[in-house]
C-alpha cells in the first residue's frame, strides 16, 4: 500500500498528464451529452409521433427516419468515428483534440438516446393522451406536459445510460487523437507499458461512471411519483 502511494505521487505522467486528461474527458463527454440531449430528445419524440399509433402518424417519414437511426446504430462506433473524420474537419476545422471528438461522439449516441426516448414515451398510457385530447390540448401541449413529463423518469434513466456510453466511447476516440483519459491509458499506459498509468486511468473512468449512475438514479427517483 505504501509503495503504491509513493508510485502514484511520484509517477510523472500521472502528476503532469492525469488532471489534464480528466478535464478533457469531462469536456468532451459534457459537450457531447448536451448535444445528444438537444438533438436526441426531439428526435425520439418525432420517432414516436410518426408511428402508426402516434400523435401525427406518417408511414413514409417513420420508415425513412427509422432506417437512418438504425443504420447509425448498426455501425460499430470506432468505424463511425473514423468515417466521420471529413465531417469533423468541416465542422470543427481539425480532427484532433477533444472538441473534434464531440462530432463522432454525438453522432454515435444520438440515435441510441433517441430510441430510448421513443421507448420511454411509448410506455405512457394511451388513456392519458386521450384524456388530454378530450380536455382540448394542442399537440405541443400533449408532447410536453403529458408525454415528456410522464416519461421523464425513464428519459432520465435513458440519458444516464447514454452518458455512460459516452464515457466509454470517449476512451475509444482517445485512441484516434482526441486526448482524454483513453488517450492517456493507451499511449502512456499500454504503448509505453506503464501499468500504474493504465490502471489509474481506468480507476478514474470507473469513478466517473459510478458518479454519473448514482446522480442519474437519484434524479430519476426524485421525478418518479408512481
Amino acid at each position: 500500500m505504501g509503495d503504491l502511494w509513493i508510485e502514484l505521487t511520484t509517477n510523472r505522467v500521472i502528476q503532469q498528464k492525469l488532471p489534464e486528461a480528466t478535464v478533457e474527458t469531462l469536456q468532451m463527454v459534457g459537450l457531447s451529452a448536451l448535444v445528444v440531449l438537444v438533438v436526441g430528445l426531439p428526435l425520439g419524440l418525432l420517432l414516436r409521433s410518426l408511428a402508426s399509433d402516434g400523435l401525427t402518424p406518417n408511414r413514409t417519414a417513420s420508415a425513412v427516419l427509422g432506417f437512418v437511426v438504425n443504420t447509425l446504430r448498426a455501425l460499430p462506433f470506432i468505424i463511425l468515428a473514423v468515417a466521420v473524420i471529413p465531417v469533423t474537419r468541416a465542422i470543427v476545422g481539425t480532427s484532433l483534440g477533444w472538441e473534434a471528438a464531440v462530432v463522432p461522439l454525438s453522432l454515435g449516441t444520438i440515435p441510441f438516446f433517441a430510441r430510448l426516448v421513443e421507448t420511454a414515451v411509448r410506455d405512457v398510457a394511451p388513456g392519458k393522451v386521450e384524456a388530454a385530447r378530450v380536455m382540448g390540448s394542442t399537440t405541443p401541449k400533449i408532447l410536453g406536459a403529458v408525454l415528456v413529463r410522464e416519461a421523464l423518469p425513464a428519459i432520465v434513466s435513458g440519458f444516464t445510460v447514454t452518458v455512460i456510453a459516452l464515457i466509454g466511447y470517449s476512451a475509444m476516440v482517445g485512441a484516434i487523437g482526441a486526448g482524454g483519459l483513453g488517450f492517456l491509458a493507451i499511449t502512456y499506459g499500454f504503448q509505453r507499458f506503464d501499468p500504474t498509468v493504465l490502471y489509474t486511468s481506468v480507476v478514474v473512468i470507473v469513478v466517473l461512471v459510478t458518479v454519473v449512475q448514482l446522480v442519474g438514479d437519484a434524479v430519476a427517483r426524485r421525478l418518479d411519483h408512481r
Binding site: A125, G127, K128, E130, A131, R133, V134, M135, G136, A145, V146, R149, E150, L152, L223, H225, R226
Partner: peptide, 16 residues
C-alpha cells in the same frame, strides 16, 4: 371540448 367534461373508467390522471 373544453365545454364538455369527461370521466374515464381508468381515470387517466397524470402520475407526475
Amino acid at each position: 371540448r373544453r365545454r364538455t367534461g369527461m370521466v374515464f373508467q381508468h381515470v387517466n390522471l397524470l402520475d407526475s
